[in-house]
Design a protein around this nucleic acid. Structure first.
Lengths: 195, 195
DNA sequence: GTCTATAGCGCGATAGAC
DNA sequence: GTCTATCGCGCTATAGAC
């Protein structure tokens, strides 16, 4: 099947990218079509030509953001190193802490949660992440690298929750330090379970 | 100093309570003065008589919510039982998980984070909570109940982050189960550190 | 203290010319 | 595909009567 050459910044492309930025910064409720159009350098007509409305455009933006988050996590969790090393690498990975998680933050958006179609990619992404981390934990238990009565699904949820909650602490404090502190606390609990 | 009798539901009281509910449900950006007035059964004029505007009313609401969260946490953390038992009780305490944390959710509100006065009570509350949990951890270490190279401030941050992140997972999934899973994972990591 | 009236502006979307 | 014009409505206030 022939795939037409995609111009790197077609109007529809710029609209999606602008929406991704604004959703991350201000959330769904706080993002207006007008703001998107201005950020994208597109007119009212263009936006409504390419998308049926704000929810449609947001869906495209959320799906792309979710896909990128997944790819970034997979690069680490499917990479080199022991199970513990990969979990540690995931926790210590460079992040723009004060911006928060572009996917997780959407869970606090009432209009996203109320719309099954908008919530789905958020749900699927965090669910996938938990499952993928559980895989790694299972791997570590099987190889004997991790020990103790650890339940993979539980530990995976704790890891994701610590990251998501770390963003909350950091944004409250206006400093990334609280995020790092929470992560170090989790690693301190986890480290003794390795051999 | 004489304290005048506070009528349980004066107009200003109802406005604050309505604002608290709406901030919890929809956040600051998603809450309009009009919606507040309708929920409180108060007119436009009443609201602007008692408060200078939306930020002023939100500040009163946030401060009260922060105070209540603090009091609820203190009832558990300052209560009976061993250090571990109190941390466990804090984690397992009944919560309206799908509503999220009425304080933590505000960190995703761009207009709250941008306004130092609105952010202050959020910051102070989460900061106090971390400190209070660190006290309990320290107590446990001093008494020998908790062992290992645990840093109180780190563990405290991890506990708060797990709770805050647990809300994110639960809201994404549309079910409280993910919150409970994350909490159980943390308790499983913590339990072996007790004697 | 509470009410209604009014304001200026932005929201989210539609219509139709080009 | 993109533009401008227009729509009905809600936002956050202000003004001033009662």
């Amino acid at each position: 099947m022939y795939s037409p050459r995609m111009t790197a910044s077609s109007t529809s492309e710029r609209l999606i990218e602008a929406t991704r930025e604004l959703l991350w910064e201000r959330g769904y409720v706080g993002t207006s079509p007008k703001a998107i159009q201005q950020a994208a350098g597109a007119g009212q007509g263009s936006m409504y030509h390419h998308f049926t409305g704000k929810p449609d455009l947001a869906l495209a933006a959320i799906r792309r953001t979710a896909g990128e988050l997944r790819a970034a996590a997979e690069r680490i969790l499917g990479g080199e190193g022991s199970a513990y090393a990969r979990i540690e690498a995931y926790l210590l990975r460079e992040r723009e802490v004060l911006r928060g998680c572009p996917v997780g933050r959407l869970t606090m958006d009432p209009d996203v949660i109320a719309d099954a179609e908008l919530r789905a990619p958020v749900d699927e992404t965090l669910d996938w992440l938990r499952g993928r981390l559980a895989d790694v934990v299972r791997e570590g238990l099987d190889s004997g690298e991790l020990s103790g009565p650890l339940r993979p699904e539980e530990l995976a949820a704790t890891v994701v929750a610590t990251v998501q909650g770390g963003y909350v602490l950091a944004r409250a404090a206006g400093s990334p330090a609280a995020f790092d502190t929470a992560v170090r606390g989790l690693l301190a609990l986890l480290a003794p379970r390795t051999r």
